[in-house]
Every structure is written in C-alpha cells, then in structure tokens.
Amino acid sequence: MQLDFAAKQLTLKLVYYGPALSGKTTNLQALHRLVAPTARGQLMTLETREDRTLFFDLLPLTAQLSDALQVRLKVFTVPGQLVHNATRRIILQGVDGVAFIADSQIIETRHNQEAFREMCGHLQANGLSVEDLPMVLQLNKRDLPNIRSDEELRALSARTREPVIPSIATQGVGVVETLLSLLDLVWLDLDRKHGLQAKFGVSSEALLTGVREALGIREGA
C-alpha cells in the first residue's frame, strides 16, 4: 500500500496467484475488457525477448472516487512455470491482498495444492502474515467437464473464511466479483491498521459502489 496524501492517492497491490495455466492472465484480460477505458491502463505482459519466459502481467486501474480520493489498483499475476520461484516471491513483496486462482478441474487438484503451499511459504519468507492477509479463492474454468462440483464448492466455502468465487474467466464470469471481494477485504484490513475510513471519509460500501462506478464496469460483457 502506498498513501500519497498530497495527491490524495491510495495505491494498492493485488496479486493473482495460482498454478500455471489456471487463468490468471485471462482474468486480467477480462478485467481490461470490462473496465471503462478512462479507468484502465494498458495491460502489460512482461516477457524477455530471448526465451519468452514470463515475469508477470500488470493491469493498472484507477478509480477517481471523489475529489478527496483516488484509488489506484495494481493488479499483478505471477508466472506459472516452476523455474520462476524467485520471481513469484519478489512479486508477493508488499502485497495487500491475494486472489488465489484455482483450476476447477479435478486433475488439477495437486497443482492447486502445491501452488497454495508454495505461496504460503513465500508470504512467510516476505514477512507477511499468512493467516491475516486478505484473500479470496477463485475456482476458475467452471465451463469445463470433470470439474469440482458445485456441491464441493459449497462445502469448501462453508469450511473456509475466504470468499469462494466460481468463475469462467474466458467469458468474464466471476471476474469482477473476484476483484471487488478482494478489494473489500483489503480495504477493511487497511482500515483496521491505518484508519482509512476516518482519513478519507469513505465507508467500505461507499468504496465498493464508488469503485464499481468509477471503473464503469459492465458485468458479463
């Protein structure tokens, strides 16, 4: 998080973490499509030219809530390939909230689990609290066959305190909800730590409606 009082700007870092090919980049692409041009920056995909290995994707979003507050969101993804362990850890530095993008396909269970464990390790190594970091779970690729059933999702949702959001990133389904639920948790968390609500006179509900409006979000488009 970065607070620039002079510019009345709050910058938040959100990271979309998950196993390779779970749909992290697709989430950012969908967000880019759904957000109004005035509120979005160019989607940056970082690859080195020689070996085309990916460092991260970055989607900058800017929501002008009022004259008193501009919220900038920097939404990052991590590279999936195993070799980029160090890069993933660097990207998690200073993160304000994580959307864990899991692949709903049953055969991906192990990859989901491994990525989650690895992420916890990185957060710890970065001195972040694994237990307290705002986090949402997205179960992507709900359109495919051989996936975790809706029943299983409900059961998972009942057992975890993280919001569990089903999605089809390729169709933009659940993508906005993921971003906004995460933003909500992040705001509440930062409000607890820094009293943002009092500083900016913006309640959690006002923030969400404000951001939704400022981003000009057209759900499902």
């Binding site: 899991a102 269970t109 989901n112 689990q113 491994e114 989650f116 464990r117 916890c120 694994v130 237990e131 986090m135 779970l137 975790r148 299983e152 998972l156 057992r159 975890t160 993280e162």
Partner: peptide
C-alpha cells in the same frame, strides 16, 4: 490458511 492447501480441494 496453512490447512487450506489440503482442502483445495480434497
């Protein structure tokens, strides 16, 4: 959280 990995989605 640490136990969540196991739950994803056993």
């Amino acid at each position: 959280r640490e136990g969540l990995a196991a739950a994803l989605f056993g």
